[in-house]
Design a binder for these strands. Structure first.
Lengths: 164, 164
DNA sequence: CACATACTTCACAAACTTATGAAATCCGAG
DNA sequence: CTCGGATTTCATAAGTTTGTGAAGTATGTG
């Protein structure tokens, strides 16, 4: 960021974007860190950069980056001869990776419905409703996987179209 | 449900399914009510039915059904000459309606990214990352809308295939 | 080897969420 | 009009989550 006014604008955006991420189930601090890493101009951050940039305690960053690394949204790098890890938001395919974990959640959904069908049986209204639920969720999972897989090619196609 | 053993099995399933719904962002009590209405055999419930069936306080049901009606997953009906509202899980297209609200959330996501691009500008790495985020999310929104719209026909096609 | 810097872990305080019991409200029946 | 059953509202207690400061740990530097 270039100056203080810009920084305030950035932080306001970070909070707004993080809010949406939180509504999608992400804990507050990881959401803020992700939004900040996305919107600020640097492409690598130490934990300290993030703490100062977001004006939160280093302790909060520590937990947040651990979770983000865990789910693959941030990667940890160590530059030889330096004391701190560097956190990189690998923006190429970032959202595909994000969706991969959402797809896993959807799959758990399908499994839960399946287990219900097993114990209830298909000869009861409840079981039949669960079967339709399972079918829809499975359909959605397939469609989403497909869409996510198609995105990189689609993006490049669009970029090429703009470039000409 | 036919007997007590079955009821325990049902409630266990309800908790498991509700857990998945909660992980998807739904508050606990609405998640339980939805799972119960889905898996139990009745197709209409009074608030009292739900309270007794789930063994929770009527107060908890009151709040839960309000939220579910709000998002369109449950509809309220009033039988003439009766004291209680009836809650109906309109299972036809239930999940399409569920997805409609998810799609709205996704749209808010797109909007948030868009606002960020506006304040940051496209001439900075942060702005460019946000632009790619917006493009992906918009793509996903379109693909999902499309898939949801195709589902009813797809389901009927499958049913017909099985029937022959 | 001692030091300084950067990060992590831990215990805790504050804020928020959740579900309850009790009281208030609603509405049809007699 | 009053009664009675059912639901809703409200205050509250219990539980959970969140982020902090302080102490501890690791690592490169002089």
């Amino acid at each position: 960021m270039t100056d203080d006014g810009e920084r305030i604008v950035l932080l306001r955006f970070v909070e707004r974007f993080a809010l949406v991420l939180r509504e999608a189930g992400m804990p507050p601090m990881p959401a803020r860190v992700l939004a900040y890493a996305l919107a600020d101009d640097a492409d690598r951050y130490t934990a300290g950069d993030l703490a100062r940039g977001l004006d939160v305690s280093p302790a909060a960053i520590s937990g947040a980056v651990r979770q983000l690394v865990q789910v693959g949204l941030l990667t940890r790098q160590r530059e030889p001869g330096t004391r701190s890890d560097l956190y990189v938001l690998d923006d190429r395919d970032l959202w595909s990776r994000f969706m991969a974990s959402e797809l896993q959640a959807l799959q758990r959904f399908v499994t839960a419905a399946e287990d219900g069908i097993e114990v209830l049986g298909l000869d009861r209204p409840g079981g039949r409703r669960l079967a339709e639920t399972r079918d829809f969720l499975a359909f959605l999972h397939a469609e989403l996987s497909d869409a996510v897989a198609r995105w990189p090619a689609e993006r490049d196609r669009r970029a090429a179209a703009h470039g000409t």
